[in-house]
Amino acid sequence: MSFGYRRFYRGPVAAVIFDMAGTIVDFGSRAPAGVFVEVFRRHGVKISLAEARGPMGAEKRAHVAELLAMPAVQARFVERHGRPSAEADVDAIYQDFIPLQIETLPQFSDLIEGAAETVAALRARGVRIGANTGYNREMMEVVQAAMARQGLELDSAVAASDVPRARPYPAMCLRNAAELAAPAVAACIKVDDTIPGIEEGLAAGMWTVGLTWSGNEVGLAPAEWAGLPTERQKALVARAEARMRAAGAHYVIGSVAELMPVVQAIEARLAAGEQP
Rank of each mutant, 00 (worst) to 15 (best):
V163M: 09
I102T: 06
N136P: 00
Q101G: 00
G197E: 02
V35W: 01
S255Q: 08
V256L: 10
T104E: 12
R76E: 08
H43C: 04
R53V: 06
G44V: 11
R83W: 05
G273H: 05
H250F: 10
P183R: 11
V35E: 07
C173I: 01
C173W: 00
A265M: 00
I112V: 13
R128W: 01
R239N: 10
E59N: 14
C173N: 05
A187F: 00
Q233N: 04
S255P: 00
A131E: 04
K46I: 03
F36N: 11
G197W: 02
L100V: 14
Q74R: 14
T212E: 10
A223L: 14
A65E: 14
T212Y: 12
A166Q: 03
E217A: 15
V252D: 05
S85M: 05
V142G: 08
Y94N: 13
P168D: 13
F18C: 08
A52Y: 06
L228T: 09
R243Y: 02
L49E: 14
A50S: 10
P164D: 13
P276H: 06
A33R: 04
A187Q: 00
A203K: 12
V13M: 03
D26T: 08
A121D: 12
D26F: 02
E66R: 15
G205Q: 07
R245H: 11
L236N: 07
P276I: 03
S156C: 11
G34F: 04
V37Y: 05
R269T: 00
S214I: 08
P106K: 06
Y169H: 13
E87V: 03
A31F: 07
F108L: 05
Q74K: 07
L152P: 02
D96S: 15
H81M: 06
R76Y: 02
P12F: 07
F18D: 04
R80E: 08
G22W: 02
Q264V: 08
A184Y: 00
L236I: 10
A148H: 13
S161N: 12
R245N: 07
G114T: 12
D26C: 07
M172V: 04
L220P: 01
L236T: 06
A116G: 10
R6V: 15
I24W: 04
R239S: 12
A268K: 12
V39K: 11
P196K: 10
T133N: 08
R61T: 06
A265E: 09
W207I: 10
D26I: 07
V39P: 03
D162H: 05
M140R: 05
V263D: 03
E179L: 15
L100Q: 09
A72K: 02
A124M: 09
